[in-house]
């Protein structure tokens, strides 16, 4: 079924018409030769799978050792009530295969803990959801060792986060040239413009585009948790407006808190480390967040799964500016800031 080599067929061009018009034939062809691994297919994993399989990726491998629970039915649309008790992989397999027969799919009933690390070498990119801190640290160590881009994500009810480690990634963006030419140099702590090329539009000679090459550098997960700070990264005004969800999420990822009070104290400490004022923390938010730790919620998964899949498609196909490196989402205000931590 899969034809990962050569040009796209007329059939493929017709099927992927509406997206080829967005990212071009070359990007679509690049995607067809990519191999992606998804670790755990929960609510966010389900959304990522849907989006990536529809996009026409070459090879998609899903790994999950869990069995279907009643609770899963509330946020995972590949499941049906008859599936409760089955291995999740067995329950979702047929429905995912039916989604896009052109994608080469593989399924494994396997936990990330029991896998030989050489297995991961087979992939161009790895996405992992629902992992605990130790698992995230371990998988990131492996992806660093083999130089593989990694996306981590998890959800806490109305709140969610994405962590990205592309190690080092050169992206190419094109934009209309403004009066002031773009200059090379650092534009933020993690991003440096290394090359700018101009190109005249072949239809309208008055339009000049700049092709900007940016070097994105990343921190691994452990390094980010060790010393997260926003000092000198944000202006005073921006610091004042930082979402409560950032310190709460980082606290959750780096500490084990056994009750709300402890969580509150640790979050205040986290605010200090981030150089944001703990006074802006709202008690309601803390309680609400704490009560929703680990909960999966379909619309939030749709947003997070959409954002991850879009970035994956971007870097595999188009290579335009990737996420860098920590994103939190607040499902109440729809706030979704990106931090370089």
């Amino acid at each position: 079924m899969s034809s990962s080599e050569g040009k796209l067929t007329e059939d493929e061009i017709a099927l992927y018409d509406r997206q080829i018009r967005l990212w071009g034939l070359a990007a679509q062809t690049n995607m067809r030769s990519a191999k992606v691994l998804l670790i755990n297919i929960g609510s966010i994993g389900t959304e990522i799978t849907k989006n990536i399989v529809l996009s026409g990726i070459g090879h998609f491998h899903i790994m999950d050792a869990s069995k279907v629970s009643e609770e899963d039915l509330g946020s995972q649309f590949f499941l049906s009530c008859e599936d409760v008790g089955k291995y999740k992989i067995d329950a979702v397999r047929e429905r995912i295969m039916d989604l896009n027969p052109r994608v080469e799919l593989q399924f494994d009933i396997e936990s990330v803990d029991s896998i030989n690390e050489d297995f991961f070498k087979n992939f161009d990119l790895i996405i992992a959801t629902e992992l605990n801190r130790e698992q995230m640290l371990k998988i990131n160590q492996i992806t660093r060792k083999f130089n593989i881009p990694l996306y981590l994500s998890g959800s806490n009810g109305l709140f969610s986060y994405i962590f990205v480690d592309l190690i080092e990634f050169k992206s190419e963006d094109e934009k209309l040239k403004s009066i002031k030419a773009t200059e090379t140099g650092y534009i933020s702590t993690h991003r440096e413009i290394v090359h700018v090329e101009t190109r005249q539009d072949d239809e309208d000679p008055e339009k000049v585009f700049e092709k900007i090459t940016t070097r994105n550098t990343y921190k691994h997960f452990g390094e980010m948790l060790l010393s997260p700070t926003l000092e000198k990264k944000l202006t005073k005004r921006q610091l004042k407006r930082v979402s409560n969800v950032l310190p709460m999420t980082l606290t959750l990822l780096s500490q084990n808190c056994s009750n709300l009070d402890e969580f509150k104290n640790e979050t205040i400490k986290m605010c200090d480390r981030l150089t944001i004022n703990p006074k802006s923390l709202s008690g309601d938010y803390l309680e609400q967040f704490y009560n929703q730790i680990g909960l999966e919620f379909s619309p939030v998964s749709a947003i997070i799964g959409g954002a991850i899949a879009q970035d994956v498609v971007n870097i595999l196909g188009k290579r335009s500016s990737p996420l860098n490196n920590f994103i939190v989402f607040d499902g109440i205000t729809l706030d979704m800031p990106i931090f370089e931590l």
Binding site: N51, S55, Y285, Q288, P299, S301, A302, I303, A307, I332
Partner: peptide, 28 residues
């Protein structure tokens, strides 16, 4: 008009999520 799965998923997620507040169903 070009159209992709991810943007639609994100927009639908946002629309359904904010409906909870529009209907005043979020206690916090």
């Amino acid at each position: 008009i070009p159209a992709i799965a991810t943007t639609n998923a994100i927009v639908a997620g946002l629309s359904s999520l904010i409906s909870l507040r529009v209907l005043n169903l979020l206690k916090y």
